[in-house]
């Protein structure tokens, strides 16, 4: 491609990727920004003041959303590592079916199961509880963790584990000193995606949380729906912060080899 044309294409791509953040950022400090003004009449820290205040509940929602996403991630790892090991290391009858079952929740829209899930969780007394929401988030999250770990284990040499064991290491020592270091990069990539998938859930949280488990996307929507663009902008920026931070810290994990793993992930 002609270098100038390439530069133009690259600029267009970069611009398109950044564009939707711009009005959100400006709105978050705007006081009075009506058509046809290209820039707000006045700037104000009021929306941020509200979003960051102790009583508005936005920060509580932030903490709650982090708590739910972290819990979901840890649970998914505890369950997904063994399952990934089975899928990655062994060939067995019915493996295709098991894979399909583990993959299904990642491809089937949440809406397909949310009504039935709501009915079950109501009877279990889980609707309106944080625990119920975490459990519900496992449904879209677990497939990713399992498949990422399956990919990791398919390149894993169990010979090292055997050696360690023959040298007298306990199973816990083997896992701690041999298995874990080998799977750690893949595990971190899987954990990153698990966190982000839980972090962005809307419908499952709305239905299973019964409105009472107010994660950030729910708070965000309640201001977007009432036309408070300034507060919406501030909360939206808060909401993308952890993803941005994680990316800056871990970007090397989702480039290169582990990006191949993304191939099994949902958008």
């Amino acid at each position: 491609m002609h270098p100038r044309l390439r530069l133009l294409a690259a600029l267009a791509l970069a611009g398109w990727l950044v564009l939707p953040f711009l009005p959100l950022a400006v709105w978050s400090v705007a006081h009075g920004w009506r058509f046809p003004d290209l820039w707000p009449r006045a700037l104000s820290g009021k929306a941020w003041g509200y979003a960051l205040s102790d009583t508005a509940g936005v920060l509580d929602s932030f903490a709650l959303t982090v708590f739910i996403a972290l819990s979901t991630t840890v649970l998914a790892a505890l369950v997904g590592i063994p399952a990934g090991r089975a899928l990655g290391l062994y060939r067995f009858r019915g493996k295709g079916l098991v894979t399909a079952l583990l993959l299904a929740p990642a491809i089937l829209p949440g809406l397909a199961i949310v009504f039935g899930l709501h009915g079950i969780f109501l009877r279990l007394g889980l609707v309106g509880t944080t625990g119920g929401v975490i459990l519900a988030h496992l449904i879209p999250v677990l497939p990713y963790m399992t498949l990422v770990m399956a990919a990791v284990f398919s390149a894993f040499d169990t010979g090292y584990e055997d050696q360690a064991r023959s040298l007298g290491a306990s199973p816990a020592q083997v896992f701690r000193h041999v298995t874990l270091p080998a799977i750690l990069p893949g595990l971190l990539a899987g954990a990153l995606f698990a966190f982000l998938i839980s972090w962005s859930q809307y419908l499952l949280t709305l239905a299973i949380g019964g409105g009472r488990v107010q994660t950030l996307p729910l708070v965000l929507y309640s201001f977007a729906a009432s036309g408070r663009n300034d507060i919406t902008g501030a909360i939206a920026l808060l909401y993308i912060l952890p993803g941005l931070l994680i990316l800056v810290v871990t970007s090397r994990w989702i480039t290169g080899r582990s990006a191949a793993v993304v191939g099994t992930l949902r958008p």
Binding site: Y50, S53, T55, A56, G57, V219, S222, F223, A225, S226, G227, R228, I231
Partner: peptide, 8 residues
């Protein structure tokens, strides 16, 4: 919950 004044 759409009005910050009422919420506060």
């Amino acid at each position: 919950g759409g009005a910050d004044n009422i919420n506060l």
